[in-house]
Amino acid sequence: MTTLGLIGLGRIGAFHTDTLMNLPGLDGLLITDERPDIVKQIATKYGATPVDSVDALFASGVDGIVVAAATPAHASLTLAAVERGLPTFCEKPVASTATESAKVAEAIARNGVPVQIGYQRRFDAAFAAAKVAVDSGALGHLTTVRSTTMDPAPPPLDYIKGSGGIFRDCAVHDFDTVRWITGQEAVEVYATGTVQGDPLFTEYGDVDTAAVVVRFDGGALGVISNARYNGRGYDCRLEVHGFDDTVVAGWDQGVPVRNMDPENSGPSGFPVGQPHNFFMDRFTEAFRTELAGFVEVVKGGPVLGATVADAVEVAWIAEAAAESLRRGAPVTIKEVRES
């Protein structure tokens, strides 16, 4: 019998509740949130077991923990679970800053309890196939990796205010993807951005449109583009270029783009499927595979997704991108590590 406890029932926590309740390898799910009415509502909707508090959840005898609370609570909740010997799945990021993430990673390493970080693109079938192609050597020496994340609309501005900005709450998925795909470590980052929508982005020291170039120690260049406004739908694509071959992921029938070449598109130029609405419908199966993998971690299996060490490296890239935007100049990973 394997039972999990889930903490935090916002957008992603409610989504994970639905996913977990439909996993055949899980026997029970206890859920909690600081809002009792939401706990009751989600428990009733999905058939999970409501719990009054985090302390009560930890004391309930669950076998593992899923942390889906707001970012500022990730570090403390993850450490609390690890201290109790509970394998933990924590949504990205592991902490609010790279420095704090590194400290959390050290504490977890000393403890030895397995922790998986939520970077679900690693479990998408097309992204995973691209990784296999790279690792097989079929592409030859890698030159450029392009990763795109375009949201159809910004998240609530209250979320933006506390999220750490576009590089820490959105582009981190791209940073994790390009680092994972290449198998190389970031050396230098150059980021730029603009505000073309709500002026509150400027007040929060953020941008709604961004581009980042990451130079890796093996010579590959990561080219990342992000936007908060992409009205056609959720656009998430990957291109991996090598001396011998190129592979792409994300060009499915729901990609929200039009092909303007009349010889290679339908009458409208759009793919035949409905455009992806948001990351949850684009990566539904990837989330399912990711959480099913975590259930196996709880049962004693290895962490096959992103580790805490991976999350720390991604956090340093995000930190460098934010500093590069502020300076208007390239920033090395070494600089932000030593600052």
Rank of each mutant, 00 (worst) to 15 (best):
T192D: 12
I166T: 03
P302Y: 06
V312S: 11
V303T: 11
G250V: 04
S265G: 12
V172K: 08
K40G: 01
P156H: 10
F175R: 03
A14T: 15
V187F: 01
A171H: 03
L200F: 00
G233P: 00
G301H: 07
N230Q: 09
V257E: 08
P302T: 09
W180E: 03
C170G: 02
I333K: 01
G165L: 07
G28K: 14
G269H: 06
K131G: 09
I38C: 04
G10R: 10
F89Y: 15
V248A: 14
S163N: 06
F127P: 00
I317H: 08
G328E: 12
S339M: 12
A105C: 11
F201L: 05
P256H: 14
P256E: 14
P24E: 13
T44Y: 04
L238A: 07
D124T: 05
G140F: 06
V82I: 02
P24R: 14
Q120M: 09
E91I: 02
R179P: 00
D235H: 15
T19A: 12
S163L: 01
V67I: 15
K45C: 02
D252C: 03
V67F: 09
D198Y: 05
G205K: 06
A68D: 04
S60E: 10
L30H: 10
G112I: 07
S101E: 09
A68N: 04
G293A: 04
Q274S: 15
P36T: 09
V189D: 06
G219N: 01
V303C: 10
S265I: 01
E263M: 07
H141Y: 02
G164H: 08
R288C: 00
K334T: 14
Y229N: 13
A211V: 08
G205A: 07
P72S: 09
A311V: 01
Q196P: 00
I12Q: 10
V172N: 09
L30I: 08
A227L: 00
F243D: 15
V195E: 07
F294Q: 03
K40W: 01
R228D: 05
E188G: 01
D55N: 15
V145N: 03
G293M: 01
M280E: 13
Q196C: 04
G162H: 11
L77F: 10
D235Y: 10
R11C: 00
R146N: 05
G162F: 03
T192E: 15
A322H: 11
T209P: 00
W316Q: 11
E239S: 13
G183M: 11
L86D: 01
G222P: 01
A321F: 10
R337K: 15
V308D: 03
V312L: 08
D252M: 04
L291C: 01
R168Y: 07
V298E: 05
P267C: 05
Q41C: 01
R122W: 13
F175L: 10
P152D: 08
L57R: 09
F287V: 00
A73K: 14
L142S: 11
F58N: 07
G233Q: 07
Y190I: 08
I181E: 12
Y204W: 09
V145M: 06
A130G: 03
T88G: 04
N259C: 13
E290C: 07
